[in-house]
Simulated assay, not measured.
Amino acid sequence: MIRIDSENKKIHFFIPYNIEEENAPPQTFDLISAYVCPICNKILRAYYIGIIPKEAVNNYIEKNSINNLPEMGLAIGNAGGGQYLKNTSHFDKYSRSSSCKWEEIPFRGVKTCLEALFEKLDRQHTGYAVPEKLIELVNKNQFEGILLVPDVCGKDLPMLIYNENVLSGIGQRTNIDFKKEWQLRESIIKFILEKIGIIERNGNQ
C-alpha cells in the first residue's frame, strides 16, 4: 500500500506483497507536495525526498483479487534529488469500473485549471475568458461538479477535478440515448455559464 500522511507530510510505502513479514515497517519519505482525490481518496500525484527503484514500486500497490494485477497504474520519475509519482489510472471513462468518476485537470491554480477545462470541453475554441464569479465559487468549493484538490503540504497551488456527468446534468437523467448524451456534453460550458448567470436559459447574454 502507498499512503499519504497529510498531517505529518509523509508518504508511506508499506511492505511489498511478495514478502511475508507482517510487522515490517514501511519505507517513509518526507513529502514536498502531494494531491489526494477528495472523492475516492486515492493519490493523484506526489513528490517526495527519497528514491524507490521504479521496478519495485508495483510491489507496494494493492492487487486485484481476480487477476492479481495492480489496482493503480503509476508513472514514476526522478527530479531534483527526489522522486515523483502520478496515478495514471485514477480516471478512465471507458474501461476501468474501479476508476474514479472525477477527472483531474493536470495544471495548478484555479484560473489556469478552469481555462484548461473550458478548452478541453470545447476543442473548437481557445483563449476562453473564465468569469471571475466562477473562479470565486470554485475557490470556495461552491460549484457543483468541480472540486478543489489542495496540496496537502500547502506549498503549491491547488488542482481541480471535475465530473462531466454532474456538469452536464446527465447523472440526473435516465434513458438517455448516445446522441442526446453527446449533445449534453457539448453544451457543458453553456450550462456552466447559465448556472452563474452569465447567460440566460434561452442563451442570451
Rank of each mutant, 00 (worst) to 15 (best):
K180I: 06
N8I: 02
H12W: 01
R123P: 00
W102E: 05
D30I: 00
E115C: 06
K42V: 02
L193D: 05
I66D: 05
S6V: 05
Y94T: 08
I176W: 04
I161N: 12
T88V: 14
R201A: 09
L74E: 01
G154W: 04
D30P: 03
F107C: 07
V57A: 03
N64M: 01
R185D: 01
A79G: 01
I61Q: 01
Y84C: 02
G80Y: 10
E7Y: 09
E7A: 09
D177F: 05
A116Q: 11
L147E: 11
Y84D: 03
I4P: 08
R96G: 04
R3M: 10
Q83G: 00
L117S: 14
Q142K: 14
I161D: 09
E7H: 07
M1F: 00
T28Y: 07
I192H: 02
S98A: 07
N41S: 14
Y162K: 12
G82I: 07
Q142F: 02
Q205P: 02
F118C: 07
K54G: 07
L184Y: 12
F143P: 10
Y17D: 11
S33W: 10
P38M: 07
G77M: 05
M72H: 05
F143E: 08
I52G: 04
N175C: 04
D30K: 04
V166E: 11
R185E: 05
Q27A: 01
